[in-house]
Amino acid sequence: MGFIAYLVLGLIAAVIAKMILPGRQGGGWIATLVVGVLGAIVGGWIGTTLFGVSVDSFFEISSWLCAIGGSIIVLIIWGLITRRKGVAERR
């Protein structure tokens, strides 16, 4: 998969992940793109390691599921980091 296709996959996966997760995730489209690309990397790594599938082709459902799942994981981790930071600043 090419670089531009990977960026588009990451952006769309992050938008879908933000719609799936409840709550308010901040950030504009650049932050969403970063979350999506990181999610695609994480999802591809987990998919390859655990299930033997990878993010190789733009039009395969396994690529999309790995990217969306990875984006959800990245959003959860980001939410935990920013929540702790906000609690520490309020004290």
Score class of each variant (00 low, 15 high):
Trp29Cys: 00
Ser71Ala: 15
Asp56Glu: 15
Ile41Asp: 09
Leu80Asp: 05
Ile41Lys: 05
Arg84Ala: 15
Lys85Asn: 14
Phe58Leu: 13
Ile46Ser: 04
Phe51Ala: 13
Gly43Arg: 03
Ala67Pro: 01
Ile4Trp: 03
Ile77Thr: 09
Leu9Ala: 05
Thr32Tyr: 03
Glu89Val: 13
Gly28Trp: 00
Leu33Asn: 00
Ile72Ser: 10
Lys85Arg: 15
Leu50Gln: 04
Ile16Tyr: 00
Gln25Leu: 03
Ile16Asp: 05
Arg83Phe: 14
Ile61Pro: 04
Trp29Thr: 06
Gly47Asn: 07
Gly26Trp: 08
Arg24Leu: 04
Ala17Lys: 00
Ala67Asn: 03
Phe58His: 06
Ser54Ala: 15
Ile16Val: 15
Leu9Arg: 02
Ser71Glu: 12
Tyr6Ser: 09
Thr32His: 01
Arg90Ile: 08
Ala14Gly: 01
Gly44Pro: 05
Asp56Lys: 10
Gly36Leu: 09
Gly39Ile: 07
Val55Tyr: 12
Ile20Tyr: 00
Gly28Arg: 01
Met19Asn: 05
Leu33Val: 03
Ile30Trp: 08
Gly26Cys: 05
Phe51Glu: 02
Ala31Glu: 12
Trp78Ala: 14
Phe59Leu: 12
Gly28Glu: 12
Ala88Arg: 13
Ser57Arg: 14
Gly52Val: 12
Val34Thr: 09
Thr32Glu: 07
Ala5Phe: 01
Trp45Ala: 12
Glu89Thr: 11
Phe59Ile: 14
Val42Asn: 09
Leu65Asp: 05
Val37Glu: 06
